[in-house]
Computed example of a mutant assay.
Amino acid sequence: MDRPRKRAQALKAAGRQPTLKTIADLAGLGVTTVSRALKDGPELAIETKARVRAIADKIGYRPHRAGVRLKTGRTFVISLVLNQADDMSDYARRLIMGISEALRGTQYHLQVLPQNIDQDPIDPVRYIVETAAADGLILTHSEPQDLRVKMLLERDFPFITFGRTELATPHPFIDTDNFDFTYRATQALIARGRKRIVIVLPPKQFTYSGHQLGGYRRALFEAGLTPRVAQGVDLYSPAFTLRSYANALATGSDAPDGIICGSEIQALGMILGFQEAGFVIGMDVDIVNKKTSD
């Protein structure tokens, strides 16, 4: 058995946790050097940092976060405020996995803070800022005049949004091009001869709902067709609700021949609804959706 593993077992038997000094003794380095290596200090050789991290992993070293916070004023935590709507279409799982992978090999770890359905969206953000519970925030479901973003800008708190706002003050964001998605989806349906195209949009309060509507309308305008926006349902409606909605559309007097739905799960619900009404997908109706799961 190698030396680090023996030391780890001895500490465990004694009811003690490994410390920076434990790593320093095993590596033959000073405590300060070990500390800098674990912080990815640029002044140290890559080989030294890798050796220190390997020893730390073997002995199960974990920094005492309360102590780190007292000493540095940093938590090494990134918080993701998880909107309840993020259950939709495997979105939350993929988001968490992507962020976790990006943080892998760094000192930071991810904290997921759920936002309850009946909770004011600004409450979890205010809690993190006022308690300094994290060093940075990731927000989803941005709105045109997002109060969360306004507060974070006023407090000068590090954050990024998945989605855009329409605020005058620039802020960090990443986003997909929802205008382009619906524009191209509508064009594809028109190219297949579809003329009665219905779109299921995200809830109106979210910025990307307007972007999707804009791309859809632009393509229809260029083709001289009339917009048909789904009423009474949206992209966050349960799949079984959209199943019933599609069934009602199919049995109506002016059934659509094309559907745009930006979620796989919700699109599957609509496919079932059309099939139950006797429609053949790809013949009687085409459905375009955005890939939202693995």
Rank of each mutant, 00 (worst) to 15 (best):
I265Y: 03
L272Q: 10
E43N: 09
G269V: 02
T131N: 11
D180G: 11
A248S: 05
L38M: 14
G15P: 04
D118L: 07
K291Q: 14
L11M: 02
L201G: 04
A45N: 14
V198G: 03
R104S: 12
I55K: 07
T19Y: 14
F181I: 10
E47S: 14
I122M: 09
A27Y: 09
Q9R: 02
Y91I: 07
V77G: 03
Q212R: 12
A230D: 01
I23G: 06
Q115T: 03
G73C: 11
A267E: 02
D25N: 15
I199F: 01
R184C: 11
A188P: 00
H141N: 04
V285D: 00
T186A: 11
D257I: 05
L201N: 08
E43A: 08
E130D: 14
S237W: 01
T48Q: 07
H171N: 14
V112S: 02
Q205F: 13
D118F: 05
I259M: 07
A37N: 00
I138S: 12
D25K: 05
N247C: 01
M88D: 05
T169G: 04
D286E: 14
G193M: 09
Q115S: 10
L268R: 07
L20K: 02
D25G: 03
T169V: 13
K71C: 06
V52G: 00
L137D: 01
L235S: 02
S244P: 00
L70T: 12
K195M: 06
A14V: 04
K195R: 12
F173H: 03
R243M: 14
D177W: 06
F240H: 15
P114E: 08
D87S: 13
D177H: 10
E264W: 02
G98E: 06
F162Y: 15
I174K: 03
L272T: 14
D284G: 15
D177L: 07
A185F: 14
G41T: 05
G41L: 08
R217Y: 11
G262D: 03
L225A: 12
T48A: 08
I78R: 03
A255N: 04
G273M: 03
